[in-house]
Computed example of a mutant assay.
Amino acid sequence: MGDVTGQILILLVLLQIKHMFADFYLQTPRMLSGRETYVHLGRAEHAGVHALGSMIVFVLMGTPVLLTLLIVAAEWIVHFHIDWAKARWSMCKQHTPSEAGYWRATGADQFGHQLTYLAMAWAWWMWAA
């Protein structure tokens, strides 16, 4: 395995650890309620927790400051909108965890976040590796 390949795998693992904590352990009641509203402080804070976690990951990876700031700003914007889209869909459909639609929405939400991490790793590879 090449040195860069190993670094990309480490980057992706660190982003997965960050994602697990930010999405499943660090959400507050304010972050979870009223998310279908576009302008939502809780969702902005939640996306900020993700951005801060990613900033730590990219600093640990030795990423240049400007690139780190650009990547995490883009992540904040994308994460905010992925979560808003899921919340709007869920509110309109009124799915509950006992319905398949709820889990499809959750799966689509998580898939969007995983694609974001692949794009972030690609940006790191292009300009920092």
Rank of each mutant, 00 (worst) to 15 (best):
Y102F: 15
H79Q: 14
Y117M: 13
I10D: 00
V4G: 02
M20N: 03
M1C: 09
V65F: 14
V13M: 12
I71C: 02
G2V: 00
R88E: 08
Y117F: 15
W84N: 04
V59N: 00
V13N: 07
I71M: 13
E36N: 11
R30C: 02
F111L: 14
A85Q: 11
H50N: 04
A47G: 12
H95Y: 15
G107L: 07
F21Q: 04
E99C: 11
V72D: 04
Y25C: 08
L66Q: 13
S54Q: 10
V57S: 07
A128H: 06
G42Y: 05
Q94K: 15
S90N: 13
F58Y: 12
T63P: 02
K18P: 01
T28C: 09
A87F: 03
V39P: 00
W89Q: 03
E99F: 00
Y102Q: 03
V39R: 09
H113I: 03
H113G: 07
R35V: 01
T37G: 01
Y25M: 10
A105M: 07
A85S: 11
Q7H: 11
V57I: 05
F111I: 02
P64A: 13
T28R: 06
K18W: 01
D23P: 11
P29V: 06
V59Q: 09
W124T: 08
G34E: 08
A123K: 08
D109Q: 04
W76S: 08
A87H: 03
G101R: 06
L60M: 15
T5L: 15
S90K: 05
V57Y: 04
L26V: 01
D83Y: 07
I8Y: 08
L52N: 00
T28Y: 10
A123S: 14
L60G: 05
D109N: 13
H113E: 03
G34P: 04
Y25T: 01
A108G: 01
G48F: 01
C92Y: 12
G112E: 01
W124L: 07
P64H: 11
I10C: 12
I77C: 11
H113Q: 10
L60N: 05
